[in-house]
Simulated assay, not measured.
Amino acid sequence: MERETTDKRTEKTKASILQALISLSKKKEINEISIRELTEAAHIHRNTFYLHYTDVYSVLSEIEENMCRDIKHMAEKYTPDELRDHVGDVTAEAFRYLYEQRESCILLLRARSMVSSGKNLLESIFERYLTAYPKSFDRNSLEFQVQFQYCTAGALGIVRYWFEQDFTQSPERMAALTGQLLIKGIQGATQVS
Rank of each mutant, 00 (worst) to 15 (best):
I63Y: 01
E93W: 02
D85F: 03
Y53M: 04
Q169L: 10
F144D: 07
T10N: 13
Q101P: 00
R128H: 14
T39V: 01
R84S: 08
A175R: 04
I158Y: 07
E164G: 11
K26P: 06
S34R: 04
D85M: 08
A111W: 00
S193M: 07
F137R: 14
E32V: 06
L156A: 05
T131A: 02
K28C: 09
A41N: 05
K27D: 13
A155L: 11
D81E: 10
D166Q: 11
T152R: 10
R84K: 13
R46E: 14
R128W: 04
L156W: 00
S23K: 14
E127Q: 05
L38Y: 01
G157Y: 00
T168A: 13
L51T: 07
R84H: 13
T152Y: 05
E37T: 03
Q191K: 15
L109D: 04
T79N: 01
S58K: 08
R84G: 05
I106R: 04
F167K: 10
S113P: 06
Y57Q: 11
A176Y: 07
R96D: 13
Q101T: 09
Q147H: 06
T54M: 10
L130C: 03
E2F: 14
E164L: 15
I33P: 07
Y50N: 09
T152L: 08
G157L: 01
Q147L: 10
E11I: 08
Y57G: 02
Q165T: 04
V146S: 04
I71R: 11
L98V: 02
E32Q: 15
L38I: 07
K8A: 07
K12T: 14
M174D: 02
E64D: 15
F144K: 05
L181S: 09
D7K: 08
V90L: 13
L182P: 00
E11F: 07
T48Q: 12
T178C: 15
N31F: 10
K119M: 00
K26M: 14
R173C: 04
F148W: 15
L83R: 00
R112V: 12
T131D: 08
R84A: 08
A155I: 14
L98F: 12
G88A: 08
E2R: 10
K26G: 10
K12L: 12
E76C: 05
E4K: 10
A41Q: 09
A20N: 02
S113R: 08
A75F: 06
G118Q: 12
Q169F: 15
K72R: 11
L83T: 06
Y133E: 06
Y57A: 09
